[in-house]
């Protein structure tokens, strides 16, 4: 530790020299690492948005129960009370024909004029049931079997699809994470090996003078860390720009997609990218350093 502190300036100078010795390759490694980490950040970003969407939809999970013909308002209200008592139901509200019409007007917005084509209100009354998504199967079964209920409509298909897309994104994320890890390790360790090879005479001399491997290897570890940290910073800048652009676009054109808070998403991604780049830089360097043992023939 004392040696590291005494020689910090020397180690940084050595790292700079090692990078300069193979400048073009190091620049490409830095760019490559940056783009790989950027890809990882994009997938995590998509996964995070998908998760948020599913969460929101799960919170909003509801089914609509429609009445059999001839059910009057009193019977309907009784059914509402009965449904409220079913386990897993958080709320049940009677939506009459007028309210159903109003809601559809809201949904259609500027296109609502098409409703004027109907002579009468085409919508029927129903019970809007808010549920816990985990209990959907049992609730559906119980509601369907109630006297006075004709059929039940649920949005399960949509939920299932979004959930499967998010799951897919999650697995894609794992896959990309593994790819990023392996690729970065290979790039960094290759650059370190190259640096060791280029500096083999110096390494051999240092060994003959009695320098420990930790002292010889430290500048190479620094190089690996600098390469991946640089790549991390590059990808962080790119992803911040992309998120800001994306949020700007989506808030205007797709306002109903529940995006996670921007700052929260950015800070989470920055932490992920930087910590991943540091860990991969360190691991890649140490992996590359294993070749130092074979450098020179006088260096036991």
């Amino acid at each position: 530790m004392k040696n590291v502190l005494y020689n910090l300036g020397y180690f940084l100078k050595e790292a700079k020299k090692i990078i300069q010795l193979n400048l073009l390759s190091n620049i490409f490694s830095f760019l490559g690492t940056g783009l790989i980490l950027f890809m990882l950040a994009m997938v995590v970003c998509g996964w995070s948005i998908g998760n948020r969407l599913v969460e929101m939809l799960q919170k909003e999970a509801e089914i609509n129960a429609y009445f059999q013909e001839g059910t009057d308002e009193q019977d309907a209200l009784k059914l509402v009370e009965t449904i409220k008592n079913i386990e897993g139901v958080s709320d049940a509200v009677l939506i009459d024909e007028a309210e159903a019409f109003r809601r559809m007007e809201e949904v259609l917005g500027e296109e609502a004029y098409i409703l004027d084509l109907f002579e009468d209100n085409p919508f029927e009354a129903y019970i809007e049931v808010r549920i816990h998504l985990d209990d959907i199967d049992t609730i559906l079964e119980e509601v369907k079997n109630l006297d006075g209920i004709d059929y039940v409509r649920d949005n399960r298909e949509v939920l299932d699809r979004i959930q499967s897309i998010t799951e897919g994104l999650k697995y894609l994320g794992y896959l990309i994470f593994a790819a990023v890890g392996i690729t970065t390790l290979v790039i960094v360790s290759h650059m370190i090996r190259q640096g060791i090879y280029n500096n083999r005479d110096q390494i051999n001399t240092l060994r003959l003078l009695g320098a420990p491997n930790s002292f010889i290897g430290f500048p190479f570890v620094l190089v690996g860390m600098l390469l991946t940290l640089g790549g991390g910073i590059l990808s962080a800048v790119l992803i911040v720009v992309l998120i800001n652009m994306g949020y700007g676009q989506m808030s205007g054109t797709l306002p109903f997609i529940p995006l996670p808070p921007r700052d929260e998403l950015i800070s989470g991604l920055l932490i992920l990218i930087m910590s991943t780049s540091i860990i991969l830089g360190l691991a890649g360097s140490l992996f590359g350093l294993s070749s130092i043992k074979n450098t020179g023939n006088n260096g036991q």
Binding site: N3, N7, K17, D201, N204, T205, L209, G210, A211
Partner: peptide, 29 residues
Amino acid sequence: RRLIGPVFQEFKLIKGRSAMENVLMGMRF
């Protein structure tokens, strides 16, 4: 080896460094 001061036949000095840096190099660890 840290207790030994070797003078190699082919010197084994590190190129691109000054005389001072080369001498310092032998003591840094």
